[in-house]
Design a protein around this nucleic acid. Structure first.
Lengths: 108, 108
DNA sequence: TTAATTTATCGTAATATTGCAATCTAACAA
DNA sequence: TTGTTAGATTGCAATATTACGATAAATTAA
């Protein structure tokens, strides 16, 4: 199948899984790290830094954008990608919540 | 292709992506939540709680186990799954690290 | 032993993901 | 206008994931 039965799960479970999925590829981690280190978010340099083709990188950027983790704005001839702070905060809270609950109930 | 070029990325990027991938399905989030709420970790009840077949659930458990997030021990006739605390801590630290860096450099 | 219970694995089918080359589009420069 | 540059999109191929039923394996109960 390959088709996730997402309707069987509640919104939070689906949302958290979606954020995790966005992070579930080393190239997307690398992209986020690039955004971090460059502070400002011009990302034309990604094609120089990542060992992937331009079209593949563009696809990964699209997935990060669709998940809500990053956002892109046209900036002259190029595009400026940066972290979507509001959504990122939500993702962090959801993950933190899981970690805290586990610490409380399952921590040794 | 569908084949991640993981050799192109460093160990930490691959490891973090692997942890994220383990969390990248609502059923696996739900399984972890069940482990949390049941405190102790008998998970035979998963087939009653999740809207998925026993074999599918077993597959998701296997993925969580392979990622290192949970571990399973034989306990009489059934199997006791619980959080793998050491690995979970590593996953949390890696994720926290990313979040903190973003807060520091990209936070508004 | 036989039967029941619990979980894993196998086989299969459908959909998703990853990746690249090629092409398209939009904006700027000459 | 024409050319250039930056990215996105399309089309394709290969692999991965998700899901289920059926079956296998291991343990306990009778």
């Amino acid at each position: 199948m390959g088709l996730t039965k997402s309707f069987n799960f509640d919104d939070k479970q689906n949302q958290l899984a979606a954020y995790a999925k966005a992070l579930a590829h080393p190239a997307r981690i690398a992209i986020i790290q690039q955004i971090i280190t460059h502070k400002t978010c011009i990302v034309g340099s990604l094609t120089d830094v990542l060992p992937l083709s331009q079209s593949t990188i563009s696809q990964h950027l699209k997935e990060l954008k669709n998940s809500g983790i990053i956002k892109g704005e046209i900036e002259g001839p190029s595009i400026c990608y940066c972290i979507h702070n509001e959504n990122w905060k939500i993702a962090r809270e959801m993950l933190d919540n899981l970690f805290v609950q586990i610490d409380q109930r399952c921590g040794q």
